[in-house]
Amino acid sequence: MTETNNTPKRVGVPIWVQIVIWVSLVGLLALMGFGLQRARNPMAELDQPVPDFNLVFYEGYEYNNTAEMKLSDFQGKIVVINIWASWCKPCEQEAPELEQAWQSYKDAGEVVFIGVDYVDTPAGANEYLTKFNITFPNAPDLKSVISSTLNRQMGVPETYLIDREGVLRQVKIGPFSSVEEIDAFINIAR
């Protein structure tokens, strides 16, 4: 974008300008390519290990009275991560079923449910958890790290199934409609 070469001697575009132009073009295209790729792959990669992240549980919703844990602490267990929010209407549809399903799994200790509360306020979360008598561990999605680690893009609710080796096995977008559906969902990792 220069008007520098106005003297008759140097007529062409100086080579360094050409280099700058092409490099910025390639950079721009690479950036767009990245954005496009991100936009088109809304889900975390199936059958790949899930990168680790921290969970800081809500008070009263800890796992075995531990306030802060990592996903990797759950190696050897099947983890069901349910992303929800108190402002999300479809989440309310599945909340009772999730709690019911949790009741049938919690004693065996083989399957862990973890609720991850997306873009929510503590007050709203508390109201929601009380309203649906939720008892499984719940943590806020601080700085949206968890949802972006899991590449959550679509909306809430979304549920992720992670097997004993920490590999993502299945993703459910939208609410579950029955306990049977939740059972079937979990059975894939068993």
Binding site: A85, S86, W87, C88, V119, D120, T121, P122, A123, G124
Partner: peptide
């Protein structure tokens, strides 16, 4: 106008 934002405003008020 979304619900999430109403909650946020309530949080600010609190």
């Amino acid at each position: 106008p979304t619900e999430a934002c109403k909650d946020w405003r309530e949080q600010i008020r609190t």
